[in-house]
Design a protein around this nucleic acid. Structure first.
Length: 377
RNA sequence: CGGGGCAUGGCGCAGCCUGGUAGCGCAACUGCUUUGGGAGCAGUGGGUCGGCGGUUCGAAUCCGUCUGCCCCGACCA
């Protein structure tokens, strides 16, 4: 990606709305912009990070035998009356009426909808166990949204739901999902802990939370539940077992805050200059900084060639082809946290070298131009 | 929802006390110079000072009211 073609909008000063470091950096690096309290737009740079995280989540979900679906964000009140939560959920549930005066809500979670799917699609124990998941926008009318994307009202969540003939099967799948969560957080290089938790409004027996460890306390990014038959009983979602008897399905549900993971990662990986992305979620693998490209044809030619080579090799490369001074280039590259930095300058080209620096280190190193690929990967 | 704070150009702020028709830095645009850690000079554009009402010859400034936003607390991915 050539930077002159990429809408990167970094801020020099810290917006006064932002208190915690991840929120400040997300605004300064141009990942997000606030629309209203608890509502954020994701800009192109932020989308790249979000996509990388989603990719890892999808891979681990698919590996665990879960099937991706997409449910509506708007849900009819009838389902919530059936489960009993229309009354229980409180004002965090955003409700509205359509033009025919029917009641609806914006989905804060999807147990009702998935249970409705399950009771219609599943009728035999032979179809079980079954795991569905989706990555979708949720809306919870939080009493107090705060810390930017860390606790917003609208947010992107991965939610999975499993269905079983009996409790043993539920426990087995619960364990599989628990392991998938561990792998996801490990692949994201996050330091985390797992805590027993109160099932709260979601219900069920056992539940565990995945906490992100941070200096300023602990910011929860995942929560998994053994629901048992809470929803299947109230909403009559049953299957026939091998004896021909109708049994309510056992259910599990597994939530993960995708947008919150972005903030959590920044919260754990930053320095005074900006974000230090873990390799797998960085918006770009490499940034190429040509020094004074406008004056030096050699710098221009060689950095463009290097850019093409790295692109051909399948890497996400950011080529800072702006006509700005080197200082501005360095500062932006550090702020947005690109993993590898290659500087092309006349000074080093005289020796057929370019300069390399990793974002997480402050040592620079000279590399022969034709060895850059080998060195980096 | 309770408590505290803030609202002036895209961002950060001054001006308000002591009313006289809006200013600084950054960002943006143009030109020249500059080019290894957010450049310099010159010039340009952009604000009904959060909304409404009141006081006054005159309100960003004083009074009333509403709204929005942020922080602390109980809840959540």
């Amino acid at each position: 990606m050539k930077l002159t073609n990429f809408p990167l909008h970094t801020l020099k000063e810290v917006p006064k709305d932002a208190e915690i470091i991840s929120h400040q950096l997300m605004l300064r690096a141009g990942l997000i912009r606030r629309l209203a309290s608890g509502l954020y737009t994701w800009l192109p740079l932020g989308m790249r990070v979000l996509r990388n995280i989603q990719k890892i989540i999808r891979e681990e979900m698919n590996h665990s035998g879960a099937y991706e679906i997409l449910m509506p964000m708007v849900q009819p009140a009838e389902l919530w009356h059936e489960s009993g939560r229309w009354g229980d959920y409180g004002s965090e549930l955003a409700r509205f009426n359509d033009r025919h005066d029917r009641e609806f809500c914006l989905g804060p979670t999807h147990e009702e909808v998935i249970t409705d799917i399950a009771r219609n699609e599943i009728s035999s124990y032979k179809q079980l166990p079954l795991i569905y998941y989706q990555i979708q926008t949720k809306f919870r009318d939080e009493i107090r949204p705060r810390f930017g994307v860390m606790r917003s009202r609208e947010f992107l969540m991965k939610d999975a739901y499993s269905f079983h003939l009996n409790e043993e099967s539920l426990l087995e799948t619960y364990d599989i999902m628990r392991n998938a969560y561990v792998r996801i957080l490990e692949r994201l290089d996050l330091k985390f802990s797992i805590e027993k938790a109160d099932p709260g409004a979601i219900g069920g027996s056992l539940s565990e939370e995945f906490h992100i460890i941070d200096d300023s306390g602990e910011i929860e990014v995942g929560h998994i539940f053994q629901l048992g038959t809470k929803y299947s009983k109230s909403m009559k979602a049953s299957v026939t077992d091998e004896t021909g008897k109708d049994c309510p399905m056992y259910m599990g549900c597994y939530g993960m805050g995708v947008t919150r993971l972005v903030a959590a990662s920044i919260q754990q990986n930053n320095d005074s200059k900006g974000i230090i992305w873990p390799k797998k979620i960085a918006p770009f693998n490499i940034v190429i900084i040509p020094i004074n490209m406008k004056k030096s044809f050699r710098v221009k030619e060689i950095s463009e060639k290097l850019y093409e080579t790295l692109i051909q090799s399948g890497y996400d490369v950011l080529f800072d082809d702006r006509d700005v001074r080197p200082g501005a280039q360095f500062v932006d590259a550090d702020l947005i946290g690109v993993t590898h930095r290659v500087v092309v300058s006349d000074k080093e080209l005289d020796k057929d070298m370019v300069e390399y620096k990793g974002r997480s280190s402050d040592k620079t190193r000279m590399i022969k131009i034709d060895k850059v690929l080998d060195y980096l990967f």
